[in-house]
Write a protein that binds this DNA or RNA. Structure first.
Lengths: 154, 154
DNA sequence: AGCAATTTAGTTGCACACGATTAATCCAAT
DNA sequence: ATTGGATTAATCGTGTGCAACTAAATTGCT
């Protein structure tokens, strides 16, 4: 109850992630412009190029997105011909999402475009693995904080 | 044109920022629940607690947000009594955004709540300054890539 | 078998985020 | 003094992101 100084550093850490995420999003938006894909749509396709078909739930647990986000996103991808959605015969609650032949045909082109754009960057002073590990550690820490902990002092 | 392998590592870096940003957002959403503030609203107030008044443009350049995002956000903050919006007399194009007495009164309480929630985390294995520096370096690299570079090979 | 609890995807409502456009205002150069 | 260009905030349209809820289907328990 005594600490009334803004945590500049911690705020900066969150703000850094917030800003970096937006910048990356913008970067991919430009890189993927030839395909009319957004970053969330791109990572959805990435997951499906690796494993297809997947149910909406499986996709969601890979991408950390719920059906409220995925359903409209998948409808847009379907409309543009990248994926198909079909209710499972075995369990009619599930919807199987699969890449289309068009998506398979375009896959290498998308990979090449993204790789070429990434090549424009030079991560010289960046220790890639350490950075990734630290981010994961921060995320792990965020996961350990339960909503309960936060609520109890509200 | 030859590299058709997905850049798992780079995708992972972007995805790590993307995921961490969402987790942080959720963390602050919970922490700020007693005040009915979102994270973007909170950083807007942080900026204004430091400098008030500011024009929408000045706020936007601090937070990297444009008027399309800020105008509705500021209207919500105004409606809830945190800020005031008044068109400048000197230059009627500008709108001066200022914290209200209510916001000043609540400031320390918000700081304390955020600090208490951050205290729940332990950034043990994390070298805070190095992490921040690396994130800034990545952001700097993203800034150097101009849209032109990305467009030319589209 | 029958029914309650669970699971799944979809829907709704709200809040960003941003590109593109618009309207009002200011400024600068004639 | 006018006017053309620049600046500023607001607006519009699209696309997430998520909490809360709904409807349908499945599972589990007796």
């Amino acid at each position: 109850m005594s600490n009334t100084t803004p945590r500049r550093l911690d705020d900066q850490l969150c703000f850094a992630f917030y800003s970096a995420s937006k910048k990356f999003n913008h970067f991919y938006q430009d890189a993927l412009k030839p395909f009319h894909l957004t970053y969330p749509q791109y990572i959805t396709l990435l997951a499906l190029w690796e494993t297809s078909p997947m149910t909406v739930r499986e996709l969601g647990s890979h991408l950390n997105l719920d059906s409220g986000t995925l359903t409209p996103l998948l409808k847009r991808l379907e409309k543009q011909g990248w994926i198909s959605r079909k209710r499972s015969d075995q369990d009619e609650r599930q919807v199987n999402v699969a890449v289309t032949p068009y998506a398979l045909e375009k896959r290498d082109e998308v990979y090449a475009r993204v790789n070429n754009c990434i090549d424009l960057m030079s991560f010289d002073g960046v220790d890639y693995q350490t950075l990734l590990a630290q981010i994961h550690q921060v995320m792990g820490e965020l996961d350990t904080i339960s909503t309960q902990d936060l609520i109890q002092e509200a």
